[in-house]
Amino acid sequence: MPVTSYLVLAAILFCIGLYGVLTKRNAVIVLLSIELMLSAANINFVAFSKYGLYANVTGQVFSLFSIAVTAAEAAVGLAILIALYRRRGTVEMDQFHSLKG
C-alpha cells in the first residue's frame, strides 16, 4: 500500500470535515467536524510514521499528543458552547454575529 492512498483518504476526510465546519449551522456539529479534521491529520501522522522518508515511531507519539489535545479542545469547546447557550438560548452558528464590524 503506498502512502499516497492513506494521504488521499486523510485529505478526503479533512475536506469533508472542513465542509461541515463551513456550512453546518449547529455548533455541536461544527465541533464534531473539527474532530473529524483532527482525526484526518492523525491519519497522516501515523501513515508517515510507517511509510515516511525517515519512518520512525515519533509520528505515533505526535498522534498521541494530538489526540490528547483534541480531547481537551472538545471539552473546552463544549463548555464554551454551553455557556453561550445559556446566554443566547441557541446554538445556531448564524445567530452569533457579535463579531460584526
Partner: peptide, 10 residues
C-alpha cells in the same frame, strides 16, 4: 515522490 521502505512495525 514519497520514497522510503516501510519501517519495522513499532
Amino acid at each position: 515522490p514519497f520514497g522510503g521502505d516501510p519501517a519495522d512495525p513499532a
